[in-house]
Write a protein that binds this DNA or RNA. Structure first.
Lengths: 263, 263
DNA sequence: CAGTGGTCTAGACCACGGA
DNA sequence: CCGTGGTCTAGACCACTGC
């Protein structure tokens, strides 16, 4: 008989939910290497019996582990420890404005242009509207600590007869602009990230050398009917911006439950 | 009394699980705009009564919606429709080798160097080993359709006295190399993405102009004890590589359950 | 206080996988 | 066939929210 860690038990009088305690026990076993990838967990029925809890509670614990990517289940077979997934990464990029604040810096927005214009051929195709459609046009730089970091151009299908106030540039994210000036709520966002050379014009505006590498982000917002409602292009200084990502198992990272929601 | 869509019912004899049918009903309502962001769903008890299913089943449906990001719950208050989250993005980047195949291209690996070397100061610090430690060193380009796309350099703490075979370069991902030649399984991966200018040396190897912008990815693999076990640096042609991301609500995208697991 | 979601139980039947 | 996870029930008590 296996003598591994029959020590751990669940405190049913604890304020911490039983399913959470159980999930932590398995998380510990997996991260300590006591349970190795591809190894099977005991059947849910056995776990329930051993810890004297109901099977539904066991299932809730396993659901947490599945969500955290630590185990996977196969109907009719069992529950197995997963291999760490480290061969795909997701680089997170918030709206740059948010990104700067997260780093504890104070971002400044320098409005360069803002007006209504009639869409030319290119913009009309980007926004799927007839050429000549009235659009809102914003152009500004973002800077922190006296240094220009990004240069953004944004277009919104102009629907509301609302005067545009610089005040709204307190949060110049495209979704915010669309919400303020568009007629439909944006629900989908497509972004394309490229590495590129800065253009002479951009170099002048950002006050950086002409050979600065940049991140180029093109952004399109769509409404529920998949109709484009906003389009933007941003240039981020490559010498000041890095995207970092962590993937795989990080101990003490799996509290998907018990989080406060802030909306 | 509200007369919205009391039409929809749940077919308990269907092969489709009740919780899934219910989740789809709410997903439909939300995506059609019948339920607007910040609007509350009926209490779980009411839903259960209306559709004549148990509350646990209702909760499972809501759990799906929460996982899909369509709603959020607040203890003691209720369940509310979420605003689409489109202000942060995650750019996915698989191992480049996988990425090329996904596009239907046939990647070719051109091994440039492969040998055991003793770590110099810089590599030793990257891998947290004493200078002079024996490391495996790989350097190769990836190409598709006769064009060089990336240039990669990888180092692995050499533990196994295993001859390195070019055959293993069929999958030259760093995690694969570490698994083959290291002593610990890699479980965490840190990647840093930068925009940069190509160096003259790299330009020569990739046979591209000297002013080509590139993505620079630095990758470190760690074992369970957070000890680095592999390190690599990759250069991707900026004129050939884009990273794309979609965020927010996309109708018919929320089947988090009922997926086949392939491991 | 009443109403809400969060947790939990002790059963049940099913579909699937493998012997 | 048996054992597995997947689904489901009809209750229960709790902690939290807001009045």
């Amino acid at each position: 008989m296996s003598m591994k860690n029959e020590l751990k038990t669940i405190d049913k009088n604890s304020a911490i939910p039983a399913y959470y305690q159980l999930a932590k026990i398995f998380e510990e076993s997996i991260c300590q290497g006591e349970l190795k990838p591809e190894e099977a967990l005991p059947p849910e029925h056995n776990i329930a019996a051993q810890y004297e809890i109901s099977r539904m509670t066991v299932r809730q614990a396993i659901a947490e582990l599945v969500a955290a990517g630590l185990v996977y289940t196969m109907k009719g077979k069992g529950t197995y420890v997963a291999k760490p997934a480290i061969d795909n990464v997701a680089f997170e990029l918030r709206d740059f404005y948010t990104e700067i604040r997260k780093r504890g810096l104070v971002p400044a927005i320098n409005l360069l242009q803002a007006r209504i214009l009639k869409a030319d051929e290119e913009l009309a195709s980007k926004l799927s509207v007839p050429p000549g459609t009235r659009c809102l046009f914003y152009r500004f730089t973002l800077s922190a600590e006296g240094e220009h970091l990004a240069y953004e151009t944004k277009y919104v299908v102009y629907a509301k007869q609302k005067p545009f106030l610089e005040v709204e540039l307190k949060d110049p994210s495209l979704s915010n602009l669309v919400a303020a000036y568009g007629d439909k709520m944006p629900v989908t966002c497509k972004r394309i990230l490229q590495a590129a050379m800065i253009t002479p014009q951009e170099a002048g505006i950002l006050e950086v050398p002409a050979d600065t590498p940049v991140f180029l982000v093109e952004q399109t917002l769509y409404d529920l009917d998949k109709k484009p409602v906003g389009w933007g292009k941003s240039v981020y200084r490559g010498d000041r911006c890095k995207l970092t990502s962590y993937e795989g198992w990080h101990k003490e990272d799996f509290y998907s439950g018990m989080v406060r929601h802030e909306q």
